[in-house]
Design a protein around this nucleic acid. Structure first.
Length: 423
RNA sequence: GCGGUCGUAGCUCAGCUGGUAGAGCACAGGUUUGUGGCACCUGGUGUCGCGGGUUCAAUCCCCGUCGAUCGCCCCA
C-alpha cells in the first residue's frame, strides 16, 4: 500500500494552530457584534434530507454543487450547501413557542462541489444572521443591512473598504417583464449579461443581448435602467420594489449609512427563494473587487415546512472571502498565542512540584505551560520564546525549597524573585 | 468544466537542450552541565507529487493522474 497522502481533501483546509487562532479571531468579532443586536446562536446537523434544498435553493447548487448520497436506510440526504433552509426548518419546528421577531445566527460549515479558487473552496464556514416574523419587514431589512455594515466595521473596516449594493427582486422582474415585455424564460440569461456588463466591451455586450433576441428599443430601456439607477425608479413608481428601494435609501441615510449602502440595479443573487430585498457586499479594493457576501428577504421559505409562514430576511458571510478581505486590507493578521507563563524545570525530580505550582497559578486564572522534561535552562528559554510566552518561572531546588521563584521576562531579561501568590 | 503556470529537504527555492541533488532558513546536538536571543562546530533526512513511457541512464523529454495557483465558464 502506498503511503497515504497528508493533503486534506480538495478544496478543504486543515486548521493548524495558527490557522485556528485566525479563524477564532474572525469568529470572535462575529459573536461580539451579532450579540449586540440580540441574536441567539443556533447550530444543526451538517446533513439534511435533500428535499429541503430541492424546491428553494438555486437549481445550479442542487444540480451540480451539492454533496448528496443515499444512506443505509435508503434516505436521500445532502451535506448542507447553505444554512438558510435549515434555519427555516428550525423556525418552523418551534414556530409557536418562539417569541417574534426571531433573531438567530450560526456559524456552520457548508459544502459545495465547485472549482476551488481564490476566495472559493468546497468547505467554508459561514456566518448566518436571520430575522423572522418582524411586524415591519422594512425595519427588519434595515436592521439586517445595519448589522452587515456593523460586522465589517467590527474588524475596523470603513466605507473606503467595502460597499453594500441593494436592490429588490421585484425590480428586475418588473423591468424585464412589464417594461421590456421579455418572455420570462429569457430573464435569467439577460440578467446574467447585465451582471457582466462592466466586464464586457460595449459591442460584445450588445452582441450578447442581440443573441438573446433583445431588440434595440429594449436595449435602450435596459441601458436607462442600469445607468440612471435610482432616478429610473423614481420615474417608474409602478415597478414592484421601486418605491421600497427609494424609501429604504432614505432610511439608510437617516441611520448615517449613506456612505456604505447604495442601489445597484444589477444585483441579482442566485437563490430562488428571495422575494424582496436583495443585497451584496463588495470589496472596494481595486485588486479585490469581488463580492464578499450577500443576502436578502425570503418570505416563503418557512411556509414550506408547514401551514404557517413567517417573513424572513438574512445573509450569509463566508470565512474564505472574509479572510481575503481582512488580509488584503490588513484589518486582521496572524494571531499570537496567548499563554502567560512557562515553567522551566531544573531537574525532572522537581516535575511534581512544578505541576502543583502550575495548578496554583491556573486557579488564579493564568495560563501556564510546564516544561515536560528538564533540559538546559537556555534551551527552555528558547522554547518559551518560540511558543510566544512572555515570562518564565524557574523551578529548581532552591525555589522548591523556599517557595520563592525566579521569574524572568524574556523580552527584557529582567528577573525577579516572587512567591507563588505574587506571580 | 476549459486553458496557462507550478509541484525538488520541515519552509523558501537553485539544479547549465538527460549522467543516481544543492543553498539559505528551520531543526537536533555541542562550544562542560542554574540563565536564551549573537558567534562557531557537527548532524540527518529527500522513493525530485504519483503512475506509466522513451533511453545504457530521467528531477530534466513524452503521456496520464492528483494537487496548488491564475484566467475563463459558472456562481455566491
Amino acid at each position: 500500500m502506498p503511503p497515504l497522502s497528508t493533503q486534506p481533501y480538495k478544496g478543504t483546509r486543515d486548521f493548524f494552530p495558527a490557522d485556528m487562532r485566525f479563524r477564532e479571531a474572525m469568529f470572535a468579532v462575529m459573536h461580539r457584534v451579532v450579540r449586540k443586536y440580540g441574536f441567539d446562536e443556533i447550530d444543526a446537523p451538517i446533513v439534511e434530507p435533500i428535499d429541503i434544498y430541492l424546491a428553494k435553493t438555486s437549481e445550479e447548487i442542487v444540480g451540480q454543487q451539492i454533496y448528496a448520497f443515499v444512506d443505509r436506510g435508503e434516505r436521500r440526504v445532502a451535506i448542507r450547501p447553505e444554512m438558510t433552509p435549515t434555519v427555516a426548518r428550525m423556525v418552523a419546528a418551534r414556530f409557536h413557542e418562539t417569541p417574534k421577531p426571531i433573531r438567530w445566527y450560526s456559524i456552520p460549515n457548508v459544502w459545495r462541489y465547485e472549482q476551488p479558487g481564490k476566495g472559493r473552496l468546497r468547505e467554508h464556514w459561514q456566518l448566518n444572521c436571520d430575522i423572522f416574523g418582524a411586524a415591519s419587514e422594512r425595519l427588519a431589512d434595515l436592521e439586517i443591512l445595519n448589522l452587515a455594515v456593523d460586522l465589517l466595521k467590527g474588524y475596523g473596516a470603513t466605507h473606503t473598504h467595502f460597499r453594500v449594493y441593494v436592490s429588490h427582486r421585484g425590480i428586475l422582474n418588473g423591468v424585464l417583464g412589464d417594461e421590456l415585455k421579455l418572455p420570462q424564460e429569457k430573464w435569467p440569461a439577460v440578467a446574467r449579461i447585465m451582471d457582466k456588463k462592466a466586464k464586457l466591451k460595449n459591442d460584445a455586450y450588445t452582441a450578447m443581448l442581440d443573441a438573446e433576441g433583445v431588440t434595440p428599443a429594449q436595449q435602450k430601456e435596459l441601458d436607462l435602467f442600469l445607468s440612471e439607477k435610482i432616478d429610473y425608479l423614481k420615474q417608474k413608481p409602478q415597478i414592484e420594489g421601486a418605491s421600497y428601494i427609494i424609501e429604504m435609501l432614505e432610511s439608510v441615510a437617516d441611520l448615517g449609512l449613506a456612505d456604505f449602502i447604495e442601489y445597484d440595479p444589477s444585483v441579482v443573487r442566485g437563490f430562488d427563494y428571495y422575494t424582496g430585498l436583495v443585497f451584496e457586499v463588495f470589496d472596494a479594493h481595486p485588486e479585490n473587487r469581488r463580492s464578499l457576501f450577500g443576502g436578502g428577504r425570503y418570505n416563503n421559505l418557512v411556509g414550506a415546512f408547514g401551514k404557517e409562514t413567517l417573513n424572513a430576511v438574512g445573509f450569509g458571510m463566508g470565512d474564505v472571502t472574509l479572510e481575503v478581505f481582512l488580509r488584503t486590507h490588513k484589518l486582521l493578521g496572524d494571531q499570537p498565542r496567548n499563554v502567560d507563563l512557562y515553567i522551566a524545570l531544573m531537574d525532572d525530580a522537581l516535575g511534581g512540584h512544578a505541576l502543583a505550582l502550575a495548578n496554583k497559578l491556573r486557579a488564579r486564572g493564568l495560563s501556564v505551560e510546564v516544561s515536560l522534561g528538564a533540559g538546559k535552562l537556555g534551551k527552555q528559554f528558547q522554547e518559551a520564546e518560540k511558543k510566544g510566552i512572555a515570562r518564565v518561572v524557574i523551578v529548581g531546588e532552591n525555589e522548591a525549597a523556599s517557595g520563592v521563584y525566579a521569574v524572568k521576562t524574556l523580552a527584557t531579561g529582567e528577573q525577579v524573585a516572587l512567591k507563588a501568590e505574587e506571580i
